[in-house]
Simulated scan of single mutants.
Amino acid sequence: MATMTIRNIDDQLKARLRVQAAMHGRSMEDEARNILRTALSAEPASGQSLVDAIRARIEPLGEVDLELPAREPMRAAVDLGA
């Protein structure tokens, strides 16, 4: 097994780690190992853009054809000088 030293940890962070370790009945070292193990066991981000991710979820549902209403000519501007 490898050994790792982490320097310059903020005092508040160390205190939170100590409290969390005590709540779980572990040493700070074991708690830090567990936090690292949990964080690194998660699936990495897919790297897909948001558009591609949305398209991948919606595409299997099929296409939808929308009828667009006919465009009307622009109305005349209102005369505010009167």
Rank of each mutant, 00 (worst) to 15 (best):
M1V: 05
A2T: 09
T3P: 01
M4G: 02
M4W: 06
T5G: 01
R7Y: 10
I9Q: 12
I9M: 15
I9C: 11
D11V: 03
D11I: 00
D11K: 04
Q12F: 02
Q12K: 04
Q12I: 00
L13V: 07
L13P: 00
K14L: 13
K14V: 03
K14Q: 09
K14M: 07
A15Y: 06
R16I: 00
R16P: 00
R18L: 06
R18P: 01
R18Q: 08
V19E: 03
V19M: 02
Q20K: 02
Q20A: 08
A21I: 03
A22D: 00
A22Q: 01
A22T: 00
M23R: 09
M23L: 06
H24Y: 08
H24L: 07
H24K: 08
H24P: 00
H24Q: 11
G25S: 01
R26Y: 08
M28S: 01
M28R: 00
E29T: 15
E29H: 06
D30I: 02
E31A: 08
E31T: 01
A32Y: 01
A32S: 12
R33H: 07
R33M: 12
N34I: 05
N34M: 09
I35A: 13
L36G: 03
L36A: 13
R37Y: 11
R37I: 05
R37C: 04
R37L: 13
T38E: 14
T38A: 14
A39S: 07
A39G: 13
A39I: 10
A39R: 07
L40M: 15
L40D: 12
L40C: 14
S41D: 15
S41G: 10
P44N: 09
P44R: 13
A45M: 10
A45F: 11
A45Y: 14
A45G: 12
S46M: 04
G47A: 12
G47R: 07
Q48N: 03
Q48S: 06
S49R: 11
L50M: 11
A53H: 08
I54V: 15
I54N: 04
R55P: 00
A56C: 03
R57A: 11
I58L: 15
I58C: 13
E59R: 15
E59Q: 15
E59N: 15
E59I: 14
P60Q: 13
L61H: 15
L61W: 14
L61N: 14
L61M: 15
G62R: 09
G62P: 10
G62D: 10
V64A: 15
V64S: 10
D65T: 14
D65M: 12
L66W: 14
E67K: 07
E67S: 08
E67H: 09
L68C: 05
P69I: 01
P69V: 03
P69T: 03
A70L: 06
A70Q: 08
R71Y: 08
E72T: 13
E72Y: 07
P73Y: 06
P73F: 05
P73R: 07
P73T: 11
P73I: 04
M74S: 13
R75T: 07
R75W: 02
R75C: 02
R75N: 02
A77D: 11
V78A: 07
D79P: 01
D79H: 05
L80C: 05
A82Y: 06
A82V: 09
A82Q: 11
